[in-house]
Design a protein around this nucleic acid. Structure first.
Lengths: 269, 269
DNA sequence: CGATAGATTGATGCAGCTCAACGCGTGTGG
DNA sequence: CCACACGCGTTGAGCTGCATCAATCTATCG
């Protein structure tokens, strides 16, 4: 039998303190109040709450505001022109919802909360003003680059990795994010999203996700009970992800130019 | 039997005139020479040739130059941190290779030519100067937005559509691009990329791509012979893409917020 | 307590992957 | 000029990973 989670709360834990310390705007925000070197530009963002399952904003609507997430979590949903919907990512406290790249005039995805959440609201005008300042500008661009990279990794995962690898990847990613936030590296994590959301993100079905979680647990990589999960064997998961014994699902993108690919030199997230 | 392609040349046709008229920089470029209202900013880009299969640039290298494509075509290849490679798109004359979003300091993908190609070379400094001017700036951002949208559509396709739909999508897309370039709407197109490249893009195997093309041909949607392809029944292909009789491959991304989705209002292409 | 949404688990089928053989077109060396 | 090889594409046969369908279980809430 697995480790006893159920001694802890069975409802979604509300991580207590707001995530200002992780916020992109912490240095210019009166609420965060960590640094006041920027007085003239300081932000006093509005804050409000969004209940579980409610959208913070919807795809295609004018992108007038960005929403740093203080409490709770959210999923991004993209709907293609033909009406296919897919989860494209999850956000945790400290992330900024609605940061659209390329100065897009509309939101490229919808953001739906996964729990009751609290967000700040920063107008894009303030954002643009703030971005006159090189350090913040760089920080914002860096976040956008990371988001883009994330989507590319997801594309490759969905396009050429097997189901267990995809799921292992997600779990490692979630654990990494968790650790980056509360420094908590014991592998405990609470999945705010449903199996269906995970399945959508990874291009699988919820049954497959459920079965794989069970299988991972059976072989001692993790333990799961509902949405409470603990990573027991991080390296084991990493080797599932890295495919150390699993055949690739399809042909590699041709290396027809014949330029060498260094087989070593790979970093693990 | 299908339409007789093989009367035409069997090698890749070189589309003759350079694609300056489609180039993002046509209004500021001395070579294109269509408009000289911008004298002080005018470009005199270098040009050079890249032979089949050679990279124009490689992923991870400093992004110092963008390369408008004059002749030929190219594929973008993304390599994930773990070494998985996947084709993420194809470029045709008039497209700009190496336009990195978010002012990324390095190329996010490699660009490999599919045929002997000719490119211009515009330094990012010139590009940034040019982008001071609102109209060009807007045009560049618009291109980046389209690229991002394309990648999202691809993600959804690979993540939740069936193989025939994905391929139909690609064919329609290629035909659309072709039409946008030479106005030629007779459905003839020449695939510059191999089956392997197509397979990689769509998250399939080359055998599946080959079989599907044959099947499409067998039911009269297209005709194929090697890399020469004609779209015979555009609407038929569109309905394969739109899945008018094909079951979805997986559960929809939950609409758990219960906000209505308009079932109509969808645009093709 | 029943109702409901989410999660687990089992049984079954098939789309697409895998392995393999062969065909076609082009380039190369004799 | 032919012979051969090599890259690319096609086609077939078989297998399997994951989807599908369906039943049951678990938590939460009124």
């Amino acid at each position: 039998m697995a480790i006893a989670f159920w001694e802890k709360a069975t409802t979604m834990p509300d991580s207590g303190a707001p995530a200002c310390s992780l916020c992109l705007f912490r240095h210019v925000c009166r609420i965060a109040g960590t640094d006041h070197a920027w007085q003239p530009l300081a932000l006093h963002p509005d804050r409000f709450e969004v209940r579980t399952g409610e959208p913070v904003f919807r795809q295609g609507r004018p992108a007038l505001t960005v929403y740093p997430l203080r409490h709770g979590s959210a999923k991004q949903i993209y709907e293609s022109p033909l009406g296919w919907r897919q989860v494209t990512g999850f956000s945790l406290p400290g992330d900024v919802l609605g940061l659209e790249p390329h100065e897009s005039p509309v939101y490229g995805t919808a953001a739906i909360t996964l729990q009751d959440a609290e967000v700040c609201a920063v107008s894009v005008e303030s954002l643009r003003e703030l971005m006159q300042r090189p350090p913040l500008r760089e920080a914002v661009l860096e976040v956008m680059r990371r988001n883009a990279e994330r989507e590319r990794v997801l594309l490759v995962a969905v396009g050429s990795m097997r189901a267990p690898q995809r799921l292992a990847m997600l779990l490692l990613d979630l654990a990494g994010e968790q650790a980056r936030r509360d420094g908590n590296r014991d592998g405990m994590l609470t999945l705010a999203m449903s199996r269906t959301d995970i399945a959508s993100l990874l291009g699988l079905t919820l049954e497959t996700v459920s079965r794989l979680l069970s299988r991972f647990a059976a072989v001692g990589l993790i333990s799961v009970r509902q949405r409470h999960l603990r990573i027991i064997d991080r390296d084991g998961l990493a080797s599932v992800y890295a495919d150390l014994d699993q055949a690739p699902r399809q042909a590699d993108a041709g290396n027809s130019a014949g330029y060498g690919v260094v087989p070593g030199e790979r970093r693990l997230a």
